[in-house]
Nucleic acid binder design. Structure first.
Lengths: 196, 196
DNA sequence: GTGTCAAGAACGAACATTCGTTTTACACTG
DNA sequence: CAGTGTAAAACGAATGTTCGTTCTTGACAC
């Protein structure tokens, strides 16, 4: 189909991305061949290579989609005024994690992205930027918690933000790899630790 | 060289494992070819395949070494009587993490193991067992903290253990992928959160 | 000689990617 | 509104490389 609408092109591109996501989530970046993606998309080799010039570009695109998928959640958490108590702010993120640790969720791909970022500087830069941003959200929450007296005046806000943020991927990791406690139990534990 | 001592055989095996570790840490499991390992070990194809019947077996062996490397640290933490305060127990583990997030440390490989475990049931079972055990250590620490009144009597000990344990890989992840705070800062933040 | 160990050539499968060809949608012509 | 040209889009066989693994061969200790 030549001379085709922009919508058509965008749809095709998304069709390939969707297929890649299915394959990557199921088999991982490395065990997925381009043939697998091509078959899943129901297209031809040439078609896929028209939209993505290499497998690496496909991986990068999926990684960016995956790492960006948490933006809305963090934005929602940040939007509260007065700010959410710390434990609640963590709990909101845990809800997201709970949804996304399912077989089709983003975390199975996110773990692979971490692994890939060890070798791919472009990906590493992206991961670094994103996670720094997320941590910043939690630092902002911590700052507001400090303002309402939930944290002591001399607390290192950025560090507290880092620790709070860390609880999120930590929960995901345990859910996926180590039969961790369910969300409510984990959230209750966080509450216990924060109780003062 | 036929008829060789057991020490020789064990040394050869370790020689291969050391080479594999260097390669895996530098290039990752998938970007490392058997040829790379063979060259790094300074051996021949036949020699390596005498000691490991497949690449997967090599990966599995390295993964087991890496996931077991934290045992001593946890044992040390557990050995204190009276038990360490919670924040100190976390800080001990952070020291280990600090050492092991260096380029030659175990965490660069551990992240890959997580990724690989998503696809390899044998590896997944091993990871699950190990991390469940580590979590158990922290639950034990939490229990003793409860006994001395550092935690409320109705706290869910296993869950608190999970949350505390989670802080460890969370710190590692941030150090490696996201310019996280240094150990002292992070530990201070944990202390702030636990302060009561 | 016999058994053990190492060497490295050789093998087949699978891989990402290229490229020449075919198909298709649309613009333009009369 | 037919007919036609054309360039974009899709196709898929073919390419060359690299991979993990096997196999044959030889060396040396006993």
């Amino acid at each position: 189909m030549p001379r085709v609408s922009d919508e058509h092109l965008a749809a095709r591109r998304q069709q390939i991305l969707d297929a890649a996501r299915v394959c990557f989530s199921r088999d991982g970046f490395h065990a997925t061949s381009m043939q697998d993606v091509i078959a899943e998309a129901g297209l031809s080799v040439g078609a896929v290579y028209r939209y993505f010039k290499s497998k690496q570009e496909l991986v990068m695109s999926i990684a960016m989609q995956v790492l960006s998928s948490a933006d809305d959640v963090f934005a929602e958490i940040m939007s509260h005024d007065p700010p959410l108590p710390l434990a609640d702010a963590v709990d909101r993120a845990l809800e997201f994690v709970d949804r996304q640790t399912e077989p089709d969720g983003v975390f199975r791909i996110a773990i692979q992205v971490w692994s890939e970022a060890l070798r791919d500087p472009e990906l590493a830069a992206f991961v670094r930027a994103r996670y720094t941003q997320f941590r910043g959200y939690y630092a902002a929450i911590a700052r507001r918690a400090q303002e309402v007296g939930e944290l002591p005046p001399d607390a290192d806000i950025d560090a507290v933000g880092a620790a709070l943020f860390g609880l999120i991927p930590a929960y995901a990791l345990q859910r996926i790899l180590a039969d961790g406690p369910d969300r409510k139990t984990y959230a209750a534990a966080v509450r216990t630790l924060l109780m003062r």
